[in-house]
């Protein structure tokens, strides 16, 4: 129960941080910063709310597969876009 509450508070904190960061003049760095914080939040949700560690190895592998295959798609599309 406590773990969930701490996680929730941490998420709200991260939300605040991401909005604050967006108001800084970071230029091109703003995008990766925003995504990085989102990734952090997502990890908290997966790790605590979705109880990643209590899942079977197959379920964990499925979670990874989704992310990794998305990276395949993104990476190879960007190979084309980046070198046109």
């Amino acid at each position: 129960m406590k773990r969930l509450t701490y996680a929730f508070l941490a998420l709200l904190l991260l939300l605040g941080v991401s909005v604050w960061i967006a108001t800084l003049p970071l230029g091109a760095l703003g995008w990766p910063a925003g995504v990085a914080i989102a990734l952090l939040k997502a990890l908290v949700v997966v790790g605590v709310f979705m109880e990643y560690r209590r899942q079977s190895w197959e379920s964990r592998a499925a979670a990874w597969a989704g992310g990794v295959w998305l990276l395949f798609l993104l990476a190879l599309v960007l190979v084309d876009l980046g070198t046109r």
Binding site: S18, V19, I21, A22, T23, L24, P25, L26, G27, G30, W31, G34, V35, I37, A38, K41, A42, V45, V46, F49
Partner: peptide, 17 residues
């Protein structure tokens, strides 16, 4: 929820400075 966590910075938080 996680999907929204990514949508939020990508749509709302572009160079708000």
């Amino acid at each position: 929820d996680i999907v929204w966590l990514f949508l939020f910075p990508l749509l709302y938080l572009i160079e708000r400075s």
